[in-house]
Amino acid sequence: MNTGPEGTHHTSSAKVHYRLRPAKNIQRKMLCEAIHRLHAFSPIDSYRYIGFGSWYFGDFILFHRVLGITEMISIEWDVVNRLRYEFNRPFGCIKLEFGASGDVLPKLELEGKKTILWLDYDSPLDRTMLEDISCFCDSAPSGSVLVVTVDAAPVRSNGRPSSLPESRYEELVGRVGEKKVPPDVKGKDLQEWGYAKVHGRIVTNEISQTLVTRNGGLDAKDKLQYRQLFNFQYADGAKMGTVGGVLFREGDKPGIERCAFDDLDFVRSDEMPYRIEVPKLTYRELRFLNSHLPSEHNGGPPESPIPEREFGYYARVYRYFPAFAEADIV
């Protein structure tokens, strides 16, 4: 887990294992499925993946196994435990770069290689994160993918939630700077999922602004566009928001269209989020429901004591749903 040098938030390694966070687990598999579709544009195993692997490397394991990506870099802020991170590398192709993402990213020669970058922060959006976003969008070649996840829970100051709308607004301005807050945003927009929405807009604005500057030096066919693919919201505990998409040259548009991202029902190109709801079901119920899915082939919810709402949640995510079981593997 990684933040800039100003960040007060540290690694989340000490917190819950990512694979035990079901919504995050579902999101990761959905991202993977969408990224897989890039194969229609360019062979996916020729991409590079950059992420914050922590010491569980959940995203690295999935992307190496499913996508076949072999060039992988995990940026790790926690230099003190360097040896433990090295020890936990699940595959030999993962390279560890120690330092704040703001220090490491500028040194990675982003120009040369199509990259999937997942900035999976676990703290609220701040200036240093916008710098990481700008750094990537300024250099990444056509076909590259950027995904940004931030904590979208109302922020506490001095241990207390900032309850007054004005203080929430001031707190947001303090984190990202007045120039980055969209002009129509008010304090009252910053409650419940409002943070996730506003964070998403700020990230998208940063991408757009960076591309305008970058495009100033380019001919029309080489100018870069950003197409949003992801706008996830979920809460395994704290509310989290993810936005992301693909950068591509105007001239590469047909290739990107071949990927048919819109066929995936979780793809979102606007401010309307895809909320990942985790159904609460027993193993017996899971197995029963699986035999009646996909629901369009089976004519709606089956007769059972399972609440229809839980069925609805499950029907949307069952292909990505993690099934945990306690296993003695030591």
Binding site: L130, E131, S134, T210
Partner: peptide, 8 residues
């Protein structure tokens, strides 16, 4: 000088 984009 003092810019944060594309790098600080």
């Amino acid at each position: 000088w003092g810019w944060s984009s594309p790098v600080r």
